[in-house]
Design a protein around this nucleic acid. Structure first.
Lengths: 129, 129
DNA sequence: TTAAGTGTATTATATCCGTAATACAGTTTC
DNA sequence: GAAACTGTATTACGGATATAATACACTTAA
């Protein structure tokens, strides 16, 4: 069962987008694997304090991308092979890095200043190693 | 006069938010300075192919933050002293770094992998040194 | 002084996001 | 088989975003 313990709504992105990102990044990290069952729309919406339609939209879009599968009446589950995992990793890393580097360049930082910034902030923030 | 040559609408953020970010990052970079005149609402909206109300919203919010000033009838201009520049630099850098590092940790990257990612992508993208 | 440009405000419309309340058919489980 | 749960769909409402069309008073420049 895919866990949503580490998930929290934050920022200005639409909630369904945040849910999609959480699943995709979990697949890249290996914490979400092919065959894993997903919480039902109703259960997850109640857990997060969010409308069922919002979860439905996220699941529906994930299914259109071939990342999860739904059979009417039964619980949905993840369909993630190694190829998809690699595709997602490349997509998300490039996307995030491009946004970060673009912002740094717009503010006039040099490459070394950006690297030092990453080093300093990495340990200040919680999460992982 | 503040130039919007390097500005382009992109991504999912509201247009008025992108305009605000462009001004703020320009101030941090030093390309936008106190006393600089801003394009009028009508001129800038025509230049960007955007509704005048969208530019008005961005300018209005910037004025509420004390970053620009408007006199009814005359052109608006930037009011940015050194203190504001430092405040903006700290705010924006921390905000962007936090988003970037959080994404990397969610995908299970180590600190060194994130640093290497920055190094590799820095030269691949256009902009500055 | 007159004309042009400017900031500001209003009303209307359309789309997206999120919530709310249902409804129905399919599956799982007892 | 029956109850509970599931995916799916619909309608309605409010807020935010963006567009469109005006309108008015103020400043600037010719």
């Amino acid at each position: 069962m895919v866990s949503f313990e580490g998930f929290a709504i934050s920022g200005s992105l639409p909630i369904y987008t945040q849910l999609i990102l959480y699943i995709k990044r979990g697949i890249v990290a290996g914490t979400v694997c092919g065959g894993d069952e997903l919480p039902s729309r109703r259960v997850l919406s109640a857990l997060l304090g969010v409308n069922p339609n919002t979860v439905q939209k996220a699941y529906h879009l994930l299914e259109e991308e071939g990342i999860i599968e739904s059979r009417s009446g039964a619980r949905s589950f993840v369909t993630a092979d190694g190829e998809l995992k690699l595709r997602l990793r490349a997509e998300l890393l490039e996307q995030d890095a491009a946004a970060w580097i673009s912002a740094m360049k717009q503010m006039g930082l040099t490459r070394e200043e950006a690297l030092r910034m990453t080093e300093v902030m990495w340990d200040k923030t919680g999460g992982e190693a």
